[in-house]
Every structure is written in structure tokens, then in C-alpha cells.
Simulated scan of single mutants.
Amino acid sequence: MKFENLDVWKRSATLAIAIFQHFKSSREYCLKDQIKRSSLSISSNIAEGYERMSSKDCVRFLYYAKGSCGELRSQLYISLQVGEVSTELANKWIIETQELSMMLAGLIRAINNANQR
């Protein structure tokens, strides 16, 4: 399977695009840089994992993507508190990171279970 066909990759790429667009004019350069990087890291690590030649490597990069979901969620809470993101948008993106994290956990589980057979 190609990573481009994975719903978790599609959704994470869509989230990164939305975040890049939202923070385009932000003057909070440090926060803007960090939040853009963590959002981009999710889909990038999924892609990199799927391009690896072993399931073990794939799972490792999926864990990196899952970690980036947590990092992004933390940054969204901070962005909300400093007024860079509205409550409605922050909550929407926080829920999306939680759902992406669950999807990644399921994908990791499925790959690990397939390797145990």
C-alpha cells in the first residue's frame, strides 16, 4: 500500500495545510515555526515510514508521527492561551490530533500483529 492511500496521511496533510495557512501572517515567529514543523512532521513521518523497507522501520516512524501529534496538541493549547488561535479552531485541531493519534496507534497495532503471524 502507498502512503498516499492512507486516510491518516491524507488527514494529517490536510491539517498541516490548514495550520500553514492560518499561521502565514503570524508575528509569533518561534511559535509559528514550531507549530508548522510539528504539523508537517506527522504526514512526513508517515510517508517516510511507508517508504522504508522493513515493518520495524515503518512502525518506528509511525511512532514519531504519533509523537508529533502530541507535540502539536501541546502547541495548540499554548497558541490558544496566547491568542494565536480561536477556541473553536483550537478545539477542532486538538480533536483532529487526538483522532490522528488513535488512527496511528491502530495502524501500528495492525502492522505489529501482521508481523507476529
Rank of each mutant, 00 (worst) to 15 (best):
M1R: 10
M1N: 10
M1Y: 11
K2S: 14
E4S: 11
E4C: 03
N5D: 15
D7P: 04
D7Y: 09
V8D: 00
K10G: 03
S12D: 04
T14R: 14
L15Q: 05
A16M: 10
A16N: 10
A16L: 08
I17H: 08
A18M: 08
I19P: 03
F20E: 13
H22Y: 09
H22F: 05
H22W: 07
H22T: 10
F23M: 14
S25E: 15
S26H: 04
R27H: 12
Y29W: 13
L31I: 06
D33N: 15
Q34R: 07
R37H: 11
S38W: 00
S39F: 00
L40N: 08
S41C: 12
S41L: 06
I42T: 06
I42S: 03
S43I: 03
S43M: 13
S44D: 09
S44Y: 06
N45D: 08
A47K: 09
E48F: 13
G49A: 10
Y50V: 07
Y50I: 09
R52G: 11
R52M: 15
M53Q: 15
S54T: 15
K56D: 14
K56R: 15
C58D: 07
R60D: 14
R60Q: 15
R60G: 10
F61N: 14
Y63C: 11
Y64D: 14
Y64R: 11
G67D: 10
G67E: 09
S68V: 07
S68F: 05
G70Q: 00
E71T: 02
R73H: 13
S74D: 06
Q75N: 08
L76G: 01
L76Y: 03
Y77S: 02
S79F: 01
L80G: 00
L80K: 10
V82R: 06
G83C: 04
G83E: 04
E84P: 00
V85I: 15
S86I: 04
S86R: 05
T87I: 12
E88I: 09
L89K: 12
L89T: 10
N91W: 04
N91F: 02
K92Y: 06
I94N: 00
I94M: 06
I94C: 00
I94F: 00
I95W: 05
E96P: 01
T97E: 00
Q98C: 13
E99Y: 01
S101R: 07
M102L: 14
M102D: 09
M102S: 12
M103S: 12
L104K: 02
G106A: 07
L107Y: 08
I108S: 06
I108D: 05
R109H: 11
A110W: 08
I111P: 07
N112Y: 04
N112H: 06
N113A: 11
A114W: 05
A114Q: 12
N115Y: 02
Q116N: 12
Q116W: 05
R117T: 13
